[in-house]
Simulated scan of single mutants.
Amino acid sequence: MTDELEETEEQIDPDELIAQAARDAAPRYGLDPDDFARRVLAQRDRRKERASRPAKECSDCREHLPARMFAEDAARPDGLQRYCKRCASDRVNRSRRMS
């Protein structure tokens, strides 16, 4: 019985499970199922790549921080914002106080 369960678990493709979940959810948002599945998988790949980077220097505080401390920015070459999340939050708060 255990061998059968292990064989079944090995045959499950995580990419296909994610894609199918995205296809199932797409109609609720009025999106094309295949396009939405492709975008979900691409985002997952970007996040995996970001997690594999060891560290980055924040342009504001100059600290070397783990890549997960930076928000995503698809327009930047490394895919991460220039400022760490803490510095970005501080900048927004300062800007709001001035207005």
Results as ranks from 00 to 15, higher is better:
R50V: 07
P54G: 08
P33W: 00
Q43S: 13
C84T: 02
P77W: 01
E72P: 04
M98A: 14
Y83W: 09
A22I: 06
A75H: 10
R53M: 06
R91Y: 08
E49D: 07
D35R: 13
R68D: 11
M1P: 01
P77C: 04
E10S: 15
R82S: 06
D32G: 12
R47C: 06
Q20C: 03
A22E: 01
C84E: 04
S99W: 03
D60F: 03
H64Y: 02
A42Y: 04
Q11D: 09
R44C: 05
L65W: 01
L17K: 11
R97H: 09
V92A: 12
R38N: 12
I18T: 11
F36T: 11
Q81I: 03
Y29P: 02
D34M: 08
E4S: 13
E63W: 03
Y29K: 12
E4R: 12
A21H: 05
L41T: 07
L41K: 08
V92P: 00
L17A: 10
Q20I: 01
E16G: 09
D24P: 02
R97F: 05
S52H: 04
R28W: 10
V40T: 14
D32I: 10
R46V: 11
A88Y: 00
C84Y: 01
N93E: 14
D73M: 05
R39G: 09
D90F: 09
S89W: 05
D32E: 13
A71M: 05
V92M: 10
R91I: 14
R53D: 01
P33S: 06
N93Q: 15
P14I: 08
A67V: 01
P14K: 02
D32N: 15
R53T: 02
